[in-house]
Write a protein that binds this DNA or RNA. Structure first.
Length: 287
DNA sequence: AAATATCTCAACCGCAATGTG
DNA sequence: GCACATTGCGGTTGAGATATT
């Protein structure tokens, strides 16, 4: 599966990984830890670029990766997070223990995006249908003739740990301050008040992670908006208006009524004199 | 049974951010 | 401050599996 080797530039292998390559990579990470991907090839003689090694480790060889069908809860969480964050798959993956950004991205593109596009509610009846693919996966897993990779996979995931890897936290804390994409996959990514206030979503986030998310991303978002808003207010742009769709998604805001994005979000994202306002909500959070 | 369409997912690519000398 | 190397992310590709005609 996957792409076939296209070239052997610089003598590097491309395409599907072999069992031997996987073993080399795993052994290296075991002894040296993650991070020094470019050194890996030099020190082990593995004919793979660092990028490829990292990808293989992150998406496949990590011992804590969870395989199998996305559960209904996970699907709902993905949907909510995508609505909130857009196509920031690594950030979304950070909230789903054992799931990789690639896996979530694939799942979204192959299934949830269509659902979102069709504006279908997340109906259980549809979820029940999905196991058409789930059955396919199960059938694959049950196959007696598994590829060496699949075999390894099974071994790996039999012993998988359900806890989040420490890198997940790093993913959140080191996430770049990109704004949520609105152009992504034709799906809504506006930040809805309903989502922000959604108790189950909030409960799903640990206070630590949420604070990190807010500190790393939305605080910057607000900073940008503050500057841009000031310019817009004083310049030719006039009051910052939200699109009709965005207003609707924010809920309770009459269409056409000028909306001050900053003032709407400020209570949620900005710090008070005594610290982030969310601190007061910590009692609501659970880990 | 064969041809065709659809789906899945591992892997590649390009870009931007970050680190290093 | 600059140039180069490395890392990380999101978008995209395409082989193989499966479903449909």
């Amino acid at each position: 599966m996957g792409r076939s080797p296209r070239c052997s530039k610089d003598g590097l292998n491309k395409g599907a990984w072999t069992v031997v390559e996987d073993e080399i990579l795993k052994n290296y990470v075991k002894s040296k830890g993650e991070g020094k991907w470019s050194n890996l090839a030099k020190e082990t003689g593995l004919k793979r670029c660092g990028k490829s090694c990292r990808l293989r480790w992150m998406n496949y060889l990590r011992p804590d990766i969870k395989r199998g069908n996305i559960s209904g809860d996970e699907e709902e969480l993905i949907t909510r997070l995508h609505k909130l964050l857009g196509n920031r798959w690594s950030l979304i993956a950070g909230r789903l223990p054992g799931r990789t950004d690639n896996e979530i991205k694939n799942y979204w593109n192959s299934y949830l995006a269509k659902k979102a596009k069709d504006s279908l509610p997340v109906a259980r009846s549809n979820i029940e249908k999905k196991p058409v693919y789930g059955l396919r996966n199960e059938a694959r897993n049950d196959q007696a003739n598994v590829t060496p990779q699949q075999h390894m996979e099974d071994q790996n995931h039999d012993s998988k740990v359900a806890t989040r890897p420490s890198t997940d936290t790093n993913q959140v804390t080191t996430e770049k301050s990109k704004l949520p994409s609105e152009s992504s996959a034709g799906s809504p990514s506006s930040t809805s008040r309903e989502d922000i206030n959604s108790s189950d979503f909030i409960l799903d986030l640990s206070s630590e992670d949420l604070c990190k998310m807010l500190d790393s991303d939305f605080a910057k978002l607000v900073d940008v908006d503050m500057n841009e808003l000031n310019n817009a207010m004083e310049g030719d742009g006039g009051p910052l208006l939200l699109s009709e769709g965005m207003e609707k998604s924010l809920g309770g805001i009459e269409s056409g009524q000028p909306t001050n994005l900053v003032s709407d979000f400020r209570p949620l994202f900005l710090e008070s004199d005594d610290g982030w306002l969310g601190d007061d909500m910590d009692v609501l959070f659970s880990d």
